[in-house]
């Protein structure tokens, strides 16, 4: 039943917006959270008109084309060189890109 929640106006709480910001991987300060909350409420208020349509028994349409899983021939082809990729990376220790410690201490998803 949780899939029918409807965040009307004030119902879109600051907590929900913070959770969305975390899922979006956006580090937002309090003022930004509040600004986003106000704008989301306004935009979702407009979008709520879709609920007036009868969409019972309608197939969702994710894509305009009917093609599915077109497969390439299984032939090796040249791809970008490690050098090209390293050139793009903001911090690299060739042949790797450098990231902060990944295991432990993270807040996860």
């Amino acid at each position: 039943m949780s899939d029918t929640k409807k965040p009307q106006g004030a119902e879109l709480s600051e907590d929900v917006v913070r959770r969305v910001a975390h899922l979006s991987r956006l580090a937002l300060d309090d003022a930004s959270i509040e600004r986003h909350r106000g704008q989301l409420v306004s935009i979702l208020g407009y979008i709520d008109r879709l609920r007036e349509l009868d969409t019972e028994n309608v197939d969702p349409m994710a894509h305009p084309l009917d093609v599915v899983n077109r497969l390439d021939a299984d032939e090796p082809r040249a791809c970008l060189s490690n050098e090209a990729l390293m050139k793009m990376a903001p911090q690299a220790a060739a042949p790797f890109v450098r990231v902060p410690k990944v295991l432990g201490g993270g807040e996860g998803a």
Partner: peptide
């Protein structure tokens, strides 16, 4: 929690 109400409804409208 919101997928059905928003995303799926939008995809049905698209159809």
């Amino acid at each position: 929690g919101y997928y059905e109400a928003y995303y799926n409804t939008a995809l049905k409208t698209r159809r």
